[in-house]
Amino acid sequence: MKGKVVSYLAAKKYGFIQGDDGESYFLHFSELLDKKDEGKLVKGSMVHFDPTPTPKGLAAKAISLPLE
C-alpha cells in the first residue's frame, strides 16, 4: 500500500503514516527495509508498506521509500 508520513519522531524511532485507504498506521524504524532511508522519513514523504493489524491497532510493516 502507498501512504504519506504524517509524523516521525527520530529520537524515539516511531511515527505515523496515513494510508491511501485513509487509515492511520504506526510506523517504527525497525520496519524500514533500508535503514539509510531514515533521514527521508519526514512529514509528507511518500512510502510503500504492508498494512498489518496488531493487537494495538494498525501497523506499517516492510516500509520502503519510492525510487527517486
Rank of each mutant, 00 (worst) to 15 (best):
Q18F: 10
K56R: 13
V5P: 02
Y25P: 01
A10F: 13
L27H: 01
H28R: 07
V5W: 02
S64C: 10
E68T: 12
F29A: 11
M46V: 15
A60G: 04
H28W: 06
E23Q: 15
P51W: 09
S30E: 09
T52P: 02
L58M: 11
L9V: 14
E31D: 10
A62V: 06
L65T: 07
A62I: 05
P66Y: 15
K12A: 08
A10K: 14
A60M: 00
G3R: 01
A62W: 08
V6Q: 10
D21S: 04
I17Q: 00
F49C: 02
S45C: 15
E31R: 05
D21H: 04
K36Q: 11
K40S: 07
K36A: 13
S45L: 14
L32P: 00
F16E: 04
I63V: 13
M46E: 12
G15K: 02
E68I: 12
L67R: 13
P53H: 14
L41C: 03
F49D: 01
F29P: 06
V6C: 12
D34S: 08
V42N: 08
G15Q: 00
D50Q: 15
L27Y: 09
V47H: 00
V6N: 06
H28D: 06
L33D: 04
K13F: 05
Q18D: 09
D21W: 03
A60T: 02
K43T: 10
P53K: 14
A11E: 11
G44K: 03
G39V: 14
E23M: 14
S45D: 03
D21R: 03
D34M: 06
K35F: 08
V5R: 01
K40E: 04
F26W: 08
A60N: 02
I63W: 00
S24K: 13
E31I: 03
K40M: 09
V5I: 11
G44M: 04
E23D: 06
V42E: 08
E23W: 10
L9I: 14
L58E: 03
V6L: 13
V42K: 13
S30I: 09
L41G: 02
M46I: 15
Y14M: 06
L41V: 05
E31T: 04
Q18V: 12
F16G: 01
T54P: 02
K13D: 02
L41P: 01
D34R: 07
D37H: 08
E38N: 04
H28E: 05
V42L: 11
P53D: 11
V47G: 01
P66D: 15
S24Q: 13
E23G: 08
L65F: 14
I63L: 05
S64P: 01
P53S: 14
D20T: 09
E31M: 07
I63D: 02
G15W: 04
A59V: 15
K4D: 03
V5L: 07
A10D: 06
S7W: 15
G22W: 03
K40V: 05
D37Y: 07
K36L: 10
V6T: 12
K13E: 03
V42R: 13
L58T: 04
G19W: 03
A59N: 06
A10Y: 11
I63G: 01
P53F: 13
K61E: 04
L41S: 01
T52M: 14
G44F: 04
